[in-house]
């Protein structure tokens, strides 16, 4: 992919796995109301806490990275919901007024 390597989330994910890192893939599967990233957007995370891409305007990435480390440990894929009606979402600061569902999975 040449120059795309530095910004392509899946290429980055593949490289991490190839050099022995554990890694996880987060994907926006649905959105409601105003949310900054379209369905299908990816965030990839490795076991060092490094990440590339985004699933929001930056407001929930921290929470997703933390959850990803657990997915890497236990291997169970899961769905995460963030939204204005969700008190935890306010804790991590989803202030855009929308809601997002994210699917989080480990690369096996």
């Amino acid at each position: 992919m040449g120059a795309e390597h530095n910004t392509d989330e899946l290429a980055c994910l593949g490289e991490w796995v190839a050099v022995g890192h554990k890694a996880a893939l987060a994907t926006v599967v649905s959105t409601w109301g105003s949310s900054p990233r379209p369905v299908g957007s990816h965030l990839v995370i490795n076991d060092q806490g490094e990440f590339l891409g985004s699933v929001s305007g930056g407001c929930i990435e921290g929470a997703v990275v933390a959850e990803a480390l657990e997915v890497m440990a236990d291997g169970d894929p899961r769905t995460l919901d963030f939204g204005v009606s969700d008190e935890e979402a306010w804790d991590v600061g989803l202030s855009c007024g929308g809601a997002i569902r994210i699917y989080l999975e480990r690369v096996e």
Partner: peptide
Amino acid sequence: MKRALLEELQCARIAKIPVALVTELDVGA
């Protein structure tokens, strides 16, 4: 996601072949 599936997905993308990744969200298949 299985590593082999990720590799095949990337091969298709590099070869510029349109491909859909379908995930059953309840079980991860």
